[in-house]
Amino acid sequence: MSENAEFQPRIAAFLCNWCSYGAADLAGVSRLQYPPNIHVIRIPCTGRMSPKFILSAFRKGVDGVWVSG
């Protein structure tokens, strides 16, 4: 990435299979535009979410983490 290009963050998005993953699906089907910076990781339930996932994501160099249930 060159210096003057706009900064494009990488965001790890942990989405619950039943809630936000469905919403993402619906957003796709409804052809809603949203920024392409999120990298979706599907989790079976937000209850599966562990703090170590978040810290591990940061450690591996993401610029932001988004957890959505």
């Binding site: 703090p51 170590k52 810290l55 591990s56 940061f58 450690r59």
Partner: peptide
């Protein structure tokens, strides 16, 4: 313990600041 798990490895073994931070934050948590 989560620091001894190696597959996947959640927390590195080095004294790098990120590994130390991960260990201490998770231990406290």
């Amino acid at each position: 313990c989560f620091v001894d798990e190696s597959q996947p490895q959640w927390c590195g073994k080095t004294q790098d600041e990120a590994d130390v931070a991960t260990f201490h934050l998770l231990r406290a948590f």
